[in-house]
Nucleic acid binder design. Structure first.
Lengths: 117, 117
DNA sequence: GAACATGCTTCGGAAGGATAGGTATTGGGA
DNA sequence: TCCCAATACCTATCCTTCCGAAGCATGTTC
């Protein structure tokens, strides 16, 4: 993920799962769409690579945070849809909380007096 | 890094280098001190493991972002001090900018209207 | 002088992300 | 008709970082 102009950055590894779960709060969606939603809502600051996206989706399914089923996309193509499970919802809360805590902590170290908003 | 109670989190990988560089803005320091400073300024939300710290310092030195020299610590022990180089300063600016951009982007995806302040 | 705190090093494994290659299907245009 | 672009998915391999663990050395204190 995260590219656009300068590739990688290595920063923020581990946030992709959280963003996928967050996206699924808006309703079931298939991989391709999830990636597009993340890219657009981030104002194209993030770019979700397929090589990151699909392994992430499988990971989330293995952990029972999402479930999947085959269906047809908006373009009438075969597509695997993902749905947030109850476990996934809890996980999303945990990760969101952790994310806020961590960004605040780093903000403190970086000397941003406001901390995380 | 980042533990305290619940270990890891896997989130935020790649920010350690930035925090080390930031810490060295305050003046030369050796590894042990750098770790303590990061822990304390983060209000103990972050924990810097030795197995992360020293490889990171070597990494930064390989990239010429810091230079090192042997000296004596406050406790009269042998210690390797690190100093931010001109290249390191530029890198710190780049990483800080990138960090702000990325947290803002993720904030957008997570639906935090304020974005990263 | 044993124990402890300080201080540094490195190995090995786990995990996530990116690159790059591949498959399949639909629809549109030459 | 044929081909290509876009959509949609999969996965092997490599790279990087982090962490646990083990080890070494030295100064201080009891």
């Amino acid at each position: 993920m995260l590219k656009k102009k300068q590739s990688n950055s290595e920063m923020l590894k581990g946030t992709l799962d959280m963003m996928i779960l967050r996206t699924l709060l808006g309703g079931d969606a298939h991989g391709h769409t999830i990636a597009k939603v993340i890219e657009r809502t981030s104002e194209d600051l993030l770019e979700v690579e397929q090589g990151s996206l699909y392994p992430a989706l499988h990971r989330l399914e293995d952990r029972r945070w999402v479930s999947s089923y085959w269906g047809a996309s908006e373009n009438n193509r075969k597509a695997k849809f993902y749905r947030l499970t109850a476990k996934g919802r809890k996980q999303l809360l945990r990760e969101t909380s952790r994310w806020r805590q961590m960004t605040r902590a780093i903000g403190l170290v970086m000397g941003e007096e406001g901390g995380a908003q």
